[in-house]
Design a protein around this nucleic acid. Structure first.
Length: 802
RNA sequence: GCGGAUAUGGCGAAAUUGGUAUACGCGCUGGUCUUAGGAGCCAGUGGAUUAUCCAUGUGGGUUCGAGUCCCGCUAUCCGCACCA
């Protein structure tokens, strides 16, 4: 018979579906296992060949867990709010709802075609009012707990489109759509106080099984640093607060730098002798993003605030104040004390502006470069700190400042609060109204969801407000508090909102009383294994951990962290190693691969392509190798000889392969698991396999290539379905061959190999080595000084000439 | 700039974690079968001046032994808060 993958794949997908093979049960006496992928954004382009990489990986885990006897939850859904759909709607005048529906339909077909063992009965869609009702509910809880607030913050503003732009829509300082100048403009936005959770978000990483680099990136993103807040008096009368991690260098502070947006810079405007220059500089800075400001190793720019001086609190000396764009308003207090002797950026700035550079920590040469070492230097030129180490000086100076009310120890985080509002249509409406009398008032929970109303046009208004603001009927509301006239909030939520809690909804997708019932949350507990892209490490992962901790605090969920284990996959690149993108025209559509080779081949290849954690370029020709492998499997397993156990000849490799494949799956080394199965099939093909061998092969291969295994399983009349078989066990004692080839080195260089029994001890190995002709020849002219033996590996002879 | 990573044949990669570098696959070469081959099967395949020597981006170091550990370079990729 021929391997007709098209017919086979459709056949088994239907059978699995009819038998509800992959439905997770909420009442089961089996141990639960929750495997999670990042749900896709249903884009108009459809699935591309990068999607199946993480999905296949977690499908392999889910299928293996079922075979190991777990009650597995492996769900799927759609993160469907967002910019691309909205932009498509604007361009083509189609309701995003319709576009989303079409895209989800297409994605569903494509995902089903690949044979993933998702529980389709629990599918969620973030744009479904039954879902976003609970997203709004969570927002209201945050609001009521003081974690949502309004604040003026700078946004990207397109001067021509008159709308707020996402950073991604700003390319090289101009608007991606129209090419007009983009400036930074202040706008009042809803913010979430994620910074209140900063410390817990760091601390609780401790007990989690995340890949180490993910933990490191999260910690660095949150960016905790210890230091002090120091008050500097000014000749204008105001106090400037600065945050510094190096209070020990306070004697070396020879000037100050404020961000151009600092409130005091504006307040002091009448005092300046060089107003024009300052206004010009502020304007220039507003055209640059934070990224551009700190990006280049460029000449430092800035302007002195002539007319105002600051006072160094320890020396009492007056020092000048500058504004410069290398100081960001969003970090610390938006103002720094500059210590050019011991900070690189300050040093460069001081050089550019001819400012004095003072040495206050000895050990370097501050005329050559900033000396930033904290471990070895001693304090100098620092009055009462002289002679102390940096660490001692830090403690003493903070104590000194505190006693005089001039400063305090302070922990600072790089993490900023989460900008939560968007002036966009395609997002969850923020369920608040503004009442002149009562302020911001939440919509009563029983009135949720606040439905997204239909609009004529999806573009933002002239002054950058959400299109919802144009629907006057909808905007005008009654204040739930006082019954007076009120106005609805017209901003919507960012796409991150829906994806911050979706994994909870899968546990209990049809609940109309709560986002998730306590019973379901108790049973399913933490997500056991969450795999996703490295690009989500800082934002999505952090946002969802934050929301989850909040839900834990208010008693919705019984555990403080959402994900027990987190791994990440690398990207699939185009043929030439570049990112796959529509504009490059190198996107590979999985449908084409499935039509030509079948879903099993695609799944196998995408897992074989390379290290799962690293990026890998797609190759059209290399796919064939996996198809050839499946052809070989088909030929081997079609008609095996009878045999209830492995043949003596194949016993070691059978046991070894079971162990290797099982271990490799757990360690996300799918590529070497497949290589091991290829080696096995090559060996079995030489002599033919028996029924027992075929059964094991099909079982361990089935998580990777489930359809062909299921068909061959049936052809061999094995019991039940392959996907419901037990994961095979192996015998450690039966994994090894009787004999082993070991390396023989002379002075560390390989000279020959000898064959010894696998369990040979040092003496036996040495004996065999010394009996070797080549080695005997060597020893005729050299004296043996020392031997090093490594069991089962090598013998190294250290020799000297006679 | 800040943060995270990577570098091994013509290509994707592997290496029991300090012990025979290049497993597995692609490609290529030769053979075979065939009316035909862009199918299948068999053999070969790191390089060279081949009894040996040289090879894991690059320069040092530690070690009996280094792709793996340490120090210094170089190059590349990802993220940077309103893309998802």
């Amino acid at each position: 018979m021929k391997y007709d993958f098209t017919a086979i794949e459709r056949k088994w997908q239907n059978i699995w579906d009819e038998n509800k093979c992959f439905s997770a049960l909420n009442d089961s006496n089996k141990t639960k296992y929750y495997a999670l992928i990042e749900f896709p954004y249903p884009s108009g382009e459809g699935l591309h060949v990068g999607h199946p990489r993480p999905y296949t990986a977690m499908d392999i885990i889910a299928r293996k867990r079922r075979m190991q006897g777990y009650n597995v939850l492996f769900p799927i859904g759609f993160d469907a709010f967002g910019l691309p759909t909205e932009n498509y709607a604007i361009k083509n005048h189609i309701h995003p709802k319709i576009v989303t529906k079409q895209n989800i339909k297409r994605f569903t077909e494509q995902l089903k075609m690949l044979g993933f063992s998702f529980d389709w009965s629990r599918t969620v869609d973030t744009t479904d009012p039954d879902y976003y009702k609970w997203t709004q509910w969570i927002f209201l809880k945050l609001f009521k707990n003081g974690l949502a607030y309004k604040s003026k913050i700078p946004v990207n503003w397109c001067t021509s489109c008159k709308c707020v732009l996402a950073n991604e829509e700003v390319v090289g300082g101009v608007c991606e759509r129209c090419g007009a100048q983009v400036i930074r403009r202040e706008k009042s936005q809803w913010m979430l106080r994620i910074t209140d959770y900063a410390q817990r978000l760091i601390d609780d990483l401790e007990g989690l099984d995340y890949v180490e680099r993910i933990k490191i990136q999260q910690k660095n993103w949150i960016g905790r640093s210890e230091g002090a807040e120091v008050n500097f008096a000014t000749t204008a009368g105001d106090i400037i607060k600065v945050f510094t991690t190096r209070p020990d260098t306070l004697f070396g502070a020879t000037y100050m730098v404020m961000s151009p947006e600092h409130k005091l810079v504006e307040k002091w405007m009448p005092l300046y002798k060089n107003q024009d220059k300052i206004i010009l500089y502020k304007e220039d800075a507003s055209k640059k993003s934070d990224f551009e400001r700190t990006e280049l190793v460029k000449e430092k720019t800035g302007v002195c605030l002539e007319g105002v001086m600051a006072v160094n609190p320890v020396t009492g000396g007056q020092i000048p104040i500058y504004i410069s764009d290398y100081v960001l308003a969003s970090y610390g207090t938006g103002c720094i004390m500059a210590v050019p002797g011991h900070d690189e950026r300050d040093w460069e700035f001081a050089r550019a502006f001819n400012l004095p550079i003072l040495e206050v920590v000895s050990g370097g040469n501050v005329n050559e470069a900033a000396y930033t070492d904290c471990d070895t230097g001693t304090m100098v030129n620092s009055g009462f700190l002289d002679g102390l180490s940096v660490d001692q000086a830090k403690l003493k100076i903070v104590e000194w400042l505190k006693a005089r009310g001039l400063g305090d120890p302070k922990v600072n985080f790089k993490l900023r609060d989460w900008v939560f509002s968007r002036q966009r249509y395609w997002g969850e409406p923020i369920p608040l109204v503004f009442c002149e009398k009562c302020g911001w008032v939440p919509i009563p929970e029983e009135q949720l969801p606040v439905l997204l109303p239909d609009v004529e046009s999806y573009e933002t208004t002239e002054d950058g407000e959400s299109p919802l603001s144009l629907i006057t009927d909808w905007v005008s509301a009654v204040c739930p508090n006082c019954g007076g006239a009120a106005k609805r909030e017209t901003d919507t939520m960012p796409q991150w909102a829906g994806s911050s809690w979706y994994f909870l909804r899968y546990m209990d997708p049809d609940n109309t009383k709560a986002p998730v019932s306590r019973e379901a949350a108790d049973y399913w507990g933490m997500v056991d294994w969450y795999n996703g892209g490295m690009e989500h490490t800082t934002l999505h992962l952090l946002y969802s951990r934050f929301w989850h901790k909040f839900l834990y605090d208010i008693g919705v969920v019984p555990f403080p962290e959402p994900y027990a284990k987190r791994t990440s996959h690398g990207m699939i690149l185009g043929n030439t190693g570049e990112k796959m993108s529509k504009s490059r025209g190198n996107v590979v559509n999985p449908n084409d691969v499935v039509n030509e080779y079948g879903a099993d081949t695609l799944r196998l290849y995408i897992m074989f392509i390379g290290d799962f954690e690293k990026a890998a370029p797609w190759s059209d020709t290399a796919v064939k190798g996996c198809k050839r492998f499946l052809d070989k499997v088909w030929n081997l397993c079609e008609a095996p000889s009878h045999g209830k156990s492995y043949s003596a000849e194949h016993d070691p490799i059978m046991n070894r392969t079971i162990k290797k494949v099982g271990d490799d799956i757990e360690n996300i080394k799918f590529n070497t698991a497949i290589a091991a199965m290829m080696t096995l099939v090559n060996e079995l093909s030489e002599t033919g396999a028996n029924k027992a061998e075929v059964k094991t092969l099909l079982t361990i291969l089935s998580p990777f290539a489930p359809h062909i295994c299921e068909e061959l399983w049936e052809m061999n009349s094995f019991q039940g379905l392959c996907c419901q078989a037990d994961w095979p066990s192996y015998d450690e004692k039966r994994m090894h061959e009787m004999e082993k080839q070991i390396a023989v080195q002379v002075n560390g260089k390989l000279r020959t190999t000898v064959t010894v029994p696998s369990d040979a001890d040092d003496d036996t190995m040495l004996d065999a080595t010394l009996r070797d002709d080549k080695i005997r020849k060597v020893l005729e002219s050299f004296n043996l000084i020392k031997t090093i033996s490594v069991k089962g590996r090598l013998v190294n002879l250290i020799v000297k000439p006679k």
